[in-house]
Simulated assay, not measured.
Amino acid sequence: MKPINKIAQTVIILAIAMSLSSLVPPPAEAQSYRDYCHDRAKRLSGYKGRAGGVVGGAVKGAVGGAIISGILGGSKKDRKKAAKLGALLGGISGANRPNSRAARIYRLEFDDCMRRR
């Protein structure tokens, strides 16, 4: 009867080990491949998200226009006009800013990683 007890013990231990191993997800399933490629491309390119944008560019342009007008000695009315013009030009240039170098490198790395799958 001893061999049967050893076999029963081995089966029980294997059953417990199998049930515990199913609780730990394998590395491939812990993170989707897309997330892996996103993290990899972000790390390699230094990309930190959309740079600037319309609102960020408008704020920078308005502040810059007001400061330059103040330095050049314009009146309060001139500073307001310069701030409005700076906001307009900054918003336009800020809309094009997501095409920065880091964003291009990120996109190339991400696409390359997804193609390798």
Rank of each mutant, 00 (worst) to 15 (best):
30 A>I: 04
74 G>R: 03
31 Q>D: 06
43 R>L: 12
77 K>W: 06
28 A>F: 10
91 G>Q: 05
81 K>C: 06
26 P>D: 13
48 K>G: 12
57 G>R: 01
38 H>G: 02
48 K>Y: 08
21 S>E: 10
4 I>Q: 13
56 G>T: 00
2 K>S: 12
106 Y>C: 01
56 G>F: 00
63 V>N: 00
62 A>L: 04
108 L>N: 12
44 L>E: 13
26 P>Q: 11
24 V>R: 13
10 T>D: 07
107 R>F: 05
24 V>W: 05
46 G>L: 05
99 N>A: 11
15 A>S: 15
34 R>H: 12
21 S>Q: 13
114 M>T: 09
2 K>W: 09
81 K>S: 10
74 G>Q: 06
83 A>N: 01
57 G>W: 01
98 P>S: 08
60 K>C: 03
110 F>W: 08
18 M>R: 14
86 G>T: 04
55 V>K: 00
82 A>V: 03
74 G>V: 07
101 R>S: 11
10 T>K: 15
112 D>F: 07
15 A>N: 13
100 S>P: 06
45 S>V: 01
108 L>V: 09
9 Q>E: 14
36 Y>S: 09
45 S>G: 02
90 G>V: 02
67 I>C: 02
75 S>M: 02
63 V>M: 02
65 G>D: 01
38 H>K: 10
113 C>D: 07
61 G>W: 00
65 G>P: 00
30 A>W: 08
31 Q>R: 15
105 I>S: 06
57 G>S: 04
66 A>N: 01
36 Y>E: 10
6 K>A: 11
50 R>K: 13
31 Q>S: 09
29 E>D: 14
3 P>V: 07
101 R>Y: 12
71 I>R: 03
63 V>H: 01
100 S>Q: 07
102 A>Q: 13
23 L>W: 11
117 R>M: 08
19 S>Q: 10
20 L>T: 09
60 K>Q: 05
117 R>E: 13
31 Q>K: 15
76 K>F: 08
84 K>A: 12
112 D>K: 13
52 G>D: 01
116 R>V: 04
72 L>D: 04
98 P>C: 09
9 Q>A: 15
66 A>I: 07
114 M>I: 15
19 S>I: 14
9 Q>K: 15
48 K>D: 11
113 C>H: 06
96 N>E: 06
109 E>F: 04
81 K>E: 12
30 A>C: 06
12 I>Y: 14
64 G>Q: 05
46 G>E: 03
46 G>I: 08
75 S>E: 03
20 L>D: 09
110 F>L: 15
33 Y>W: 07
28 A>S: 13
7 I>L: 14
27 P>K: 08
75 S>D: 03
